[in-house]
Design a protein around this nucleic acid. Sequence first.
DNA 1: CGCGCGATTGAAGCGACTCAACGGCAGTGG
DNA 2: CCACTGCCGTTGAGTCGCTTCAATCGCGCG
Lengths: 259, 259
Amino acid sequence: MAGEANLLALLDLLGVPPQDRDHAARQPLAIKRVKARQALFRWGEPMRALAIVRHGSFKLCHLDELGYEQVSGLAMRGDVLGMESLDLPQHDSDVVALEDASVFVLPRDQVSALSLRMPVLGQALQQASSRRLRQSQALVDVLAAVASEVRLARFLLWHSRQMAEDGWSDRRLHLRMGRRDLASLLGVAHETVSRSFTALSMAGLIAVNDRDIEILDPTRLQGYARSTRRPQEDSRSVTPLRPTATARPPSAPRSLFVA
Amino acid sequence: MAGEANLLALLDLLGVPPQDRDHAARQPLAIKRVKARQALFRWGEPMRALAIVRHGSFKLCHLDELGYEQVSGLAMRGDVLGMESLDLPQHDSDVVALEDASVFVLPRDQVSALSLRMPVLGQALQQASSRRLRQSQALVDVLAAVASEVRLARFLLWHSRQMAEDGWSDRRLHLRMGRRDLASLLGVAHETVSRSFTALSMAGLIAVNDRDIEILDPTRLQGYARSTRRPQEDSRSVTPLRPTATARPPSAPRSLFVA
DNA sequence: CGCGCGATTGAAGCGACTCAACGGCAGTGG
DNA sequence: CCACTGCCGTTGAGTCGCTTCAATCGCGCG
């Protein structure tokens, strides 16, 4: 359930250069493991600590009182969790693991003391906070797109960039969430997500195999994502999509991992 | 164009209790004034300083390269601007004044030094950062609503709470933005915003007079905002809206400031 | 006054939601 | 081993809401 490490490992995760590290970094630090579908934080729970994702991924969501949950964000390796509740007595949102995961635990009452003793930590946290803020605003951009296919395209590109920042391929993506969660995040019906996947796939922009996505044509996908609304199927215009009847898809939805 | 004050005034704005203030708070501090529709920050511009809103309000937006702007947030008194770019060389978004406004200017290279000399400042900034993060996630919730009228209802309630936090009335709102900006923020066409206003108004939930909004029935408006989709016009259910033909609206859209 | 801009309203087309059925896959128990 | 049962993802059909294009009105400003 729990493990132990020291601040050094955390600073490493947050990308603090080795030379900036204090000797104080030997300070012990708790590690918490969370199994898939388990909650790390729950809404209303007393806010006791920050958590920094070590491996695995999480979804942030708000419970639409009694019933549906609204996914409002994702968190991956290096992301800070609980930051949005740092100045509150209780957690403001649910944080649920999408897969088996582990986090560093930073008790809130130690945050300011540690930051004072070790300025680089405070700066790293501030940096992480900035990243989350940008991520959240990027999500607003995704959601603001009117057409569902454009939303999906923007999401995929955003996710692709996220992966690229962590040194992964920006072409092959593995979604950690099901269609329902994704639909909640994108603000559409889950059937619509499905249809949008096949539409982008039919257009040859991506290849889809369940939760494995490959971006086949980044350039056109970007052009497509830019459009405020669904692009016209004007053949001379950029980004032809939505074939009138016949286009260039290979007769069936492109799939990964098939001959 | 510019003015001068000291850190004391800033700490005051950020809600730091007087007893916690350092004598160092006499540190001089620049004030910048921005006229309506002017940009405080621009995308790509070198990131030089944070700004804290003293009075007036701002919109955050991203330029949908060449052409449309996507409004992705609002900022009011006490909000920190530029936080999302704190760890970047350049600004990540545009920040435009919705009305004549002024801000405290906190050069980025002084942020860490000042925070170190005066821990309460650092904490206050962290707190402000948390607030922005919550605000941004709340906006995601607003945008995730499927029906446009529900989006508008959620936005109005959210805005109402924001105003209440600042000690203003939570019933009478003055929107600082036009229908177009609001439409961009809500992710719908501006005509739809207009129609949603009249719909909520016809239902007796709010009264509308251009940018002045009065919330007439907070309880029913909240119930309405909760619904994932447009509530059924089921008369025994909560939140009757969308009159089949005849309902209870006073024959014309309710307006403020009329006999 | 005329001009432009913002807000509202109307009409028409299409896109997303809903309801529904189907196939695949995992876990379970006979 | 194999039916049985859910759950997930996909696809189809129909309704309704949102977008689009358009006209109108009111208002501030040169």
